[in-house]
Simulated assay, not measured.
Amino acid sequence: MTTPFWHNKTLSQMSDEEWEQLCDGCGRCCLNKLLDEDTNEILYTNVACNQLDIRTGQCRHYVDRFKYEPDCIKLTRENLLTIEWLPKTCAYRYFEQHKTLPEWHPLITGDKKMMRKKGVLIKNRIVYEKDVIHWENHIISE
């Protein structure tokens, strides 16, 4: 039996395909964040990028997302440690902290059913940027 790649590789050793598979596809990265100017605290919102499909929690144009959303931030091995707003559930964050993947991760379970059960998926709980007037009304806890 072959050992899964996430058991014996660091993030820097993973191929681009493995790197992409590590993402659980929760959609939380596609939620807008606000910065409290007084405290420098990152405030999470339920306001999604207009390219996020509410039903699936996936980007509609992932491969060419920068064409549709020039401000989209691509998570890379090089910038991983500089992005402070990654969700606590992020597999890349788990790896950087030398933790194992959570039991609900699709690489372990084979699908997203457990993510849904554990409340990790954001689908159906979001609104789109284009529909928001008062952003402060959409602040949520991470």
Rank of each mutant, 00 (worst) to 15 (best):
Glu142Ser: 12
Gln13Lys: 10
Ile108Val: 13
Lys74Asp: 11
Gly27Ala: 06
Leu22Asp: 01
Asn40Arg: 11
Gly57Glu: 01
Arg93Leu: 14
Leu107Glu: 04
Gln97Phe: 06
Leu34Gly: 06
Val120Ser: 00
Thr3Pro: 03
Ala48Gln: 07
Lys99Met: 10
Thr109Phe: 03
Thr39Val: 09
Asp111Ser: 10
Ser15Tyr: 06
Tyr68His: 14
Ile42Gly: 09
Gly110Tyr: 00
Leu81Met: 14
Val132Met: 08
Arg60Gly: 15
Cys26Val: 01
Arg93Thr: 13
Leu35Ile: 15
Arg116Ile: 12
Leu52Val: 04
Glu129Gln: 14
Lys99Gln: 14
Cys49Tyr: 00
Ser12Met: 09
Asn32Thr: 04
Ser15Arg: 09
Glu18Pro: 01
Leu43Gln: 04
Ile54Asp: 15
Cys26Phe: 02
Leu80Tyr: 04
Ile140Ala: 05
Leu86Trp: 11
Pro87Leu: 01
Glu142Gln: 09
Tyr94Asn: 13
Met115Arg: 00
Cys26Lys: 02
Asp111Pro: 04
Arg55Lys: 15
Thr56Trp: 02
Tyr44Gly: 05
Thr10Asn: 09
Lys112Ile: 12
Trp135Glu: 00
Thr100Ala: 12
Leu101His: 02
Ile139Pro: 00
Ile122Ala: 02
Thr76Asn: 04
Asp53Leu: 06
Ser15Val: 08
Tyr68Glu: 05
Asn79Thr: 10
Pro106Leu: 05
Thr2Ser: 14
His7Asp: 14
Cys72His: 11
Leu35Ala: 09
Trp135Ser: 03
Asn40Asp: 14
Leu107Asp: 00
Lys67Ala: 11
Gln97Met: 11
Lys113Tyr: 10
Gln13Ser: 09
Glu18Tyr: 01
Glu17Pro: 05
Glu37Tyr: 13
Trp135His: 02
Lys74Phe: 09
His7Lys: 15
Asn50Gln: 06
Cys26Trp: 00
His105Pro: 03
Ile122Ser: 02
Ile42Leu: 15
Arg77Val: 10
Leu43Ala: 02
Tyr94Ser: 11
Tyr94Met: 13
His98Glu: 15
Gly110His: 01
Thr76Ala: 04
Leu80Trp: 06
Trp19Asp: 08
Leu86Ser: 08
Pro102His: 11
Lys118Cys: 13
His138Ile: 10
His134Thr: 14
Cys26Gln: 01
Gln58Asn: 12
Phe5Asp: 01
Arg28Thr: 10
Ala48Phe: 08
His105Arg: 05
Lys123Gln: 13
Thr76Met: 05
Gln21Gly: 02
Glu142Gly: 12
Ser12Gly: 00
Met14Ile: 01
Trp104His: 08
Lys123Pro: 01
Gly110Ile: 00
Lys112Trp: 06
Asn79Trp: 10
Asn46Arg: 08
Ser141Ala: 12
Asp131Ala: 13
Tyr94Pro: 03
Ile126His: 01
Leu35Tyr: 10
Arg65Ile: 13
Thr56Val: 07
Glu103Thr: 10
Glu17Arg: 13
Leu101Val: 06
Asn50Ala: 06
Gly119Trp: 03
Val120Ala: 02
Cys49Arg: 03
Asp36Asn: 15
Gly27Met: 03
Leu101Pro: 04
Cys72Glu: 07
Glu78Lys: 14
His7Thr: 10
Tyr44Asn: 12
Leu75Cys: 04
Arg65Thr: 05
